[in-house]
Design a binder for these strands. Structure first.
Length: 376
RNA sequence: GGACAGGUGGCCGAGCGGUUAAUGGCAGCAGACUGUAAAUCUGCCGCUCCUUGCGAGCUACGGAGGUUCGAAUCCUCCCCUGUCCA
């Protein structure tokens, strides 16, 4: 994997670049749709590629390990082949499940003992085993097992968790490098900066992880219930410490209006469940703000969801029809809504990338900030 | 004509003497969702009023009477619906 930095905004931290992977080029800044179970819910790979032009999607180690099993996927030629997705895949390690399934796991120095949410079976995830699972999947960008802490956390607790995350990252990275030599794979592993909402811990963590000289770095442990301003603050503290010539990935963010803020702070990659999950729940993001499609006001609204959007949903269907599909519980709604929301996110990222390349990101940022103030 | 069964808030459907303006579900209305245990979850959902409070008043379980301190719940008559028999 190779990162090519194409342009930097002179006034903000924003950058444009290209990540070269074995499964194509990822133009950054990039938003990565989440496809936990080897599927972006409701959207066919064909549409992900042709309609949305997503360059990279996420999948999840914990979930695919449990079902259908990484050995099965390995045997069937890897995840790309298994799910018929020719472009890049980033796999999360299961670190987020340490947070989201906290009642089903026990952490030790060795790793995380999960009790499967499917059948109750116990499975120990170690730094090495999670790398091995991700290699079996054939992921392009792997994430090391980390401890994603809940909010709020004490400084002491956050420090302890962060130190452990660093030790795990070192173990994972060593194992990863050894296996790369054996397999000749072109994959990358991005260590994850933790430290909860404490700037000093974030800094300590970053400086520890820099010693690994990894191909890219992630900022994790955000979007766990903290105020949004804190997530941005922690990002702002961390990105300047990360190598300029490597991609930076903030995990699990964010709301549409926050994406430019992360980019302005030097973030190249983001992923979030919001556009897809909210779509299924009837919350659509548009250039005029949120549309809660089930509201009675859209009952006889013959206009497109977002007149400024070129997605197939907006080109083809009315708000009234979308509302009807939602109310009727039709599965087509999820597909149309998810395509729209993802298109909205991806278009926004493409606009930012263009703005950066053209040296106009500052103006872009001022513009979105102003319209956010107006609409609030 | 006869025998059963039944009529409950927009709909379905519990309740069968008293914390019942009435369990549930659906529909309706509104909100949430951030490295996905989510096509999920939460709130409101008879009317009116205000000092918006586990507030006050009113109207409600087919209709009319009755029994009772108290009735959606028990009794009588009537109306209506379904099934079966003639």
């Amino acid at each position: 994997m190779r990162f090519e930095l194409e342009a930097e905004c002179p006034d903000t931290g924003a950058r444009a670049g290209r990540i070269h992977t074995a499964h194509g080029v990822i133009e950054t800044p990039v938003f990565m749709p989440v496809g936990t179970h080897a599927s972006v819910k409701g959207v066919m790979q064909r549409d992900l590629e042709m309609e949305l032009d997503a360059h990279v999607i996420l999948a999840n180690t914990y979930h695919l390990f449990l079902r259908p099993g990484h050995e099965l996927i390995r045997q069937l030629g890897g995840l790309h082949r298994f799910m018929s997705w020719p472009r890049a895949i980033l796999t999360d390690s299961g670190g987020f499940q340490v947070f989201s399934l906290s009642h089903l796991r026990k952490i030790s120095e060795e790793g995380v003992l999960f009790r499967s949410h499917l059948d109750g079976d116990s499975h120990l995830f170690t730094p090495e085993s999670t790398v091995e699972v991700q290699l079996a999947l054939g992921s392009d960008i792997l994430m090391p097992l980390d401890e994603c802490l809940e909010y709020p956390a004490s400084h002491e607790g956050a420090d302890r968790a962060m130190r452990r995350t660093v030790r795990w990252a070192v173990s994972a990275y060593r194992y990863f490098e050894r296996r790369l030599e054996e397999t000749g794979s072109a994959a990358a592993l991005f260590p994850i900066v933790q430290g909860s909402m404490f700037a000093d811990l974030r800094r300590d963590c970053a400086s520890e992880l820099l010693q690994l000289n990894a191909a890219g770095y992630a900022i994790g442990g955000l979007s766990v219930g903290e105020p949004r301003s804190l997530s941005l603050e922690m990002t702002e503290v961390t990105t300047p410490l990360l190598p300029r010539d490597r991609p930076r990935y903030v995990m699990g963010v964010g709301m549409p209006e926050e994406l430019p803020e992360y980019v302005a702070r030097g973030v190249d990659m983001m992923d979030c469940v919001l556009p897809s999950r909210n779509a299924r729940n009837g919350c659509l993001f548009t250039s005029a703000g949120r549309v809660i499609i089930k509201q009675a006001r859209y009952k006889d609204d013959g206009a497109p969801l977002d007149p400024n959007c070129g997605c197939i949903t907006c080109r083809t269907y009315s708000r009234a029809y979308l509302r009807h599909l939602f109310q009727a519980g039709e599965m087509l709604f999820s597909t149309l809504a998810t395509i729209h929301n993802l298109k909205y996110y991806l278009d926004m990222m493409r606009q930012m990338r263009q703005a950066i390349l053209l040296g106009r990101f500052r103006a872009y940022l001022d513009n979105v900030r102003n319209s956010a103030v107006e609409s609030s």
